[in-house]
Amino acid sequence: MALSRAHRVFGAAEAEPFGISSDALRQRAATGGLQRVGRGWYAPADRPLTWTHRVEWATRTTGGVASHRAAAVLWKLEGFRASKPEVLVPFERRVRPTGVKVHRTRRWSPAGHSERNGIAVVGPAVLIGQLASYLPEVRLRACIDQLIREKHLTVATLARFHVETPLGTPGRAALGEVLSQFVEDERVPMSDFSRLVADLLVAGGLTEPVLEHNFYDDEGLIQMVDLAYPNQSEALAIGLDSLSHHRDRATFIGDRRARNRLELLGIKVLLFTWWDYTDEPELLVAQVRKALSGH
């Protein structure tokens, strides 16, 4: 029927526009014309019920999105198999359908959700945050690698998600450890790191810094810094270093000589590492704010 072509799983709300009442749905299910998926929800009888039917029903009956292991299956992560449907719902939504594991969150954000095979599901970054709370580090990294390889995720996006996750959230520390490995193998380009810090400063209420700004003195070019506030009453240069232990001696010496020249011009200099960004983002913003205030 037309309803089955429009919806894989449907209830009274979807049937009503087709002129089919709740009573009619129940009658069709009783005579074998429909299959009952859950209370008040049905699927066509022309094919067997599958795990996909169950997950779609779970998301639609709760108003949530597939999450955790169910989301990992929908994203086709290696090593995950279909099991009890799991969904994520807003914290205030009290629903508990039979046979469904419901997770509630105070950080409900539709912008972080996606769709797979016609089913609402958490996005890749949110999924990794969930998996980080219980997967071993090696397996968590494998999941991240797969999502990056398949172009569903970038390290920069995952790093932004990590920073926005409140301290103490289960899995946050484990995710930070894995992200540090991507820094060590140079999977985080400096251009991405600069943009992440710039976004963090703006989110913290500061004006957007200039990226890759050149400072000069009477001798010529001093240095191109990653971020800068050159037009403040007291100019500020911000240096970022995600790979400090990879730097050679010449670069190390040159950076410090350039910093001395900037200081002699009255330009304040702040230096931050990847770990400042991921582990103490509030402190990073506070220190930039203090430098710009002249204190």
Rank of each mutant, 00 (worst) to 15 (best):
A198F: 03
E219V: 11
Q146D: 03
A70M: 07
E234K: 12
G176T: 01
G294R: 05
D276G: 06
A29R: 01
I128A: 04
Y134Q: 13
P44K: 02
A228L: 11
W75A: 03
A132M: 04
A13T: 06
D199E: 04
S133L: 12
S233R: 14
K290N: 07
A237I: 01
E14K: 04
G204D: 03
V188K: 07
L88V: 11
R26S: 12
R195I: 09
T61M: 13
R47K: 09
R256P: 04
G33W: 03
G205R: 01
R60L: 13
S194G: 11
G171M: 10
P97I: 10
T278H: 11
A111K: 15
V285G: 00
V178S: 08
A174C: 06
Y277H: 14
R104H: 14
W275F: 10
I253S: 02
Q27A: 08
E115P: 07
Q35G: 09
L34H: 00
G171L: 11
L206P: 15
C143T: 03
N117G: 11
D217W: 05
S22T: 14
A237T: 01
G294Y: 07
P124E: 09
V100W: 03
P124Y: 05
G204V: 01
L201A: 01
Q181A: 11
T169H: 13
V102M: 10
L3W: 01
G79R: 06
F182H: 14
V95Y: 11
R249E: 12
A203E: 13
V155P: 01
E92G: 10
E212A: 05
